[in-house]
Design a protein around this nucleic acid. Structure first.
Lengths: 346, 346
DNA sequence: ACGCTTATGGAAAGCGCTTTCCAAGCAGGC
DNA sequence: GCCTGCTTGGAAAGCGCTTTCCATAAGCGT
């Protein structure tokens, strides 16, 4: 661990107190808020001194003395991914509204990094941790995360998870399965009968839930996705692109493809375009990423209120802890656009 | 400011020391690194105790005692904006490589928020601040930011700016003007003669630089953008969309439109599409946002290595301070795609 | 005038660490 | 055997705050 070398030589509260001609205690009470009151005249003097010296209270020292922080940690997979950056934006907005600073860490989709950062945040005595996580099915990583979060909670911190509903802590549950089910139903309603799915990585529960839900939605109308039309791959744009090409190579005749997230769907669209098929094969995604709203053909998808999800997680963590984990369910809403124009069957 | 209520009751170093049967000093030396050595046998005992108690050193207390932090602050306008989230990703990557935690704040494009967060980070005794900033021409806000950063540096912190080259601190300078100039030149080379510009907000220097550079690029070939074809507006997707519509309403005949960033360009494309003109009017953007690489027609733009910019800023801030501010120049590279197919004249 | 409550300033004891400063133990050189 | 010098553990003094706990002064009903 590299740390900075410069020695700090900042203005301290003692400097302020001396300058104002009062005691340390009084200065503290006047400036940094306290149950005790200070005579207005003196408070004014202290404040003036602080301003003159450009005093900024040492938050670390305050944290040590008070035994609490105004720092919350947010752990995401990849801040560059619009899914996570929207969640982060929501969390940051809620944090700001509550006077909290947020520290963000990116795990690069490695579950063990989640544990590592959780430990770091415990060290920082963060007031809370929000993990917008991997939803892996790696039992071992999950257990270690659970243990770490447990230690964090026992030491007085609060925890909320987004999406990950397998740990006994407050969670914002995203109805991936229900959303995908709705989508499947609507697509069948549009007349599609032959489907492919770009299913993302095998171990990723989010992806698996969406696949399951989608299959359920189709099954309600007795449509099935043939196993060989389910292509696994990466969860990103290139993953969608490559999976699409492979699907095309394997089975030419699909009418409609469901990519388990928008970014993959866009990759799929690009792949189809490269074959001149972008108006022939219908494509649907999931998430309704803002930046992707202007692709052509406009993407049918399931809209998730990502910013609100981030806010909800942070607000959850701000409330008094409940004796039993809370869940807050967030549903997605199917948005049909031109990428699934529907079939006219003769 | 709202803070968490729970009192912390975490394992302390004293607990570890007692459990290991050594003094506080020894425990500290054994666990948290020190110049002094500890006999291997004792160190082992301490480490085992720490593990048994699941000890996590209180980073706040360490910071107070040591007088330094491993926290760096990153101030961006809007983490949801892919421009900033890419920069953040780069900065976070570099931070992680150096064992630093990063705290991110979003200003929502309000310059006074930058000052506010800089002050908060000074309070946190952050090792460094990186501001990916507004580049406003608001003199007053700039002065206050300068004063705050000055105080921060004097108290031992390091500062780097991205884009903002008006303050005497280390800066990653983005060659907006040169990039736009190149773009202008290339577009003229493609045969375009009649241009419009979607110029973003009036007070935003980034936007202004890109406009200026673009005009210079055209001027080299004696092409000018008529003032009434320069549309000001918001710096986002809707800003581009609306400005495009207005431009269309005002002057029907432009061949090529330059939007000062990609997000606006996509908005413009959407506006054109709504008029059936997306293949008639050429569009160029700036930034080469990853998520936007799959729009159709593929967007001609100036590629900025955003992730590297974030990394560069963080690395700058990690180096020993120089007596005179460093600048690191980052140039953009024109990428011609189908949104500017070129004109066949004659 | 008296006791009693209430307001308000200061001294000092923490908070959980790091880092002197001391002292003890031990090897080696004479 | 004594002094020097090195290693290593512990006591204690901070780091910059907050928050008791005290002390003093003022307000006030009787």
């Amino acid at each position: 661990m590299r740390t900075m070398g410069a020695k700090r030589c900042a203005v301290t509260l003692e400097d302020v107190a001396r300058q104002a001609g009062v005691s340390l205690a009084t200065a503290s009470r006047a400036i940094n808020g306290s149950a005790r009151t200070v005579r207005p005249e003196i408070r004014e003097r202290v404040e003036r001194a602080a301003r003159a010296l450009n005093y900024a209270a040492n938050a670390q020292a305050q944290a040590v003395a008070r035994g609490r922080t105004n720092l919350v940690g947010l752990v995401v997979q990849d801040i560059e991914d619009p899914y996570f950056s929207s969640i982060a934006a929501g969390a940051m907005r809620a944090a700001e509204a509550n006077g909290l600073m947020v520290s963000i860490a990116g795990t690069g989709r490695r579950p063990d990094k989640e544990v590592e950062y959780a430990a770091a945040l415990r060290g920082l005595r963060a007031a809370a941790i929000v993990i917008a996580g991997s939803r892996t099915d790696d039992r071992d990583a999950l257990d270690r995360l659970g243990a770490e979060l447990d230690a964090f909670e026992r030491s007085g911190g609060r925890v909320a998870l987004i999406g990950q509903r397998r740990l006994p802590v407050d969670t914002v549950v995203v109805a991936n399965r229900a959303g995908a089910r709705d989508l499947g139903t609507r697509l069948v309603g549009l007349g599609y009968r032959s489907f492919g799915v770009l299913a993302g990585p095998r171990g990723l529960l989010t992806a698996a839930d969406r696949l399951t839900g989608f299959a359920e939605g189709l099954a309600a109308s007795d449509v099935v996705v043939p196993p060989e039309a389910i292509m696994y791959g990466e969860f990103d744009r290139d993953g969608g692109h490559d999976a699409m090409l492979e699907l095309l190579a394997r089975r030419g005749e699909v009418e409609c493809v469901f990519a388990v997230n928008d970014v993959m769907a866009v990759g799929a669209l690009a792949a189809l375009r490269s074959r001149g098929l972008e108006r022939t094969v219908a494509v649907a995604g999931f998430d309704d990423i803002t930046t992707l709203r202007d692709v052509t053909p406009a993407l049918t998808t399931v809209r998730l209120p990502l910013v609100e999800i981030g806010e909800a997680a942070l607000e959850m963590v701000l409330r008094e802890p409940a004796d039993t984990p809370r869940r807050r369910l967030v549903r997605g809403e199917v948005v049909l656009r031109e990428s699934t124009p529907g079939v006219r069957r003769g």
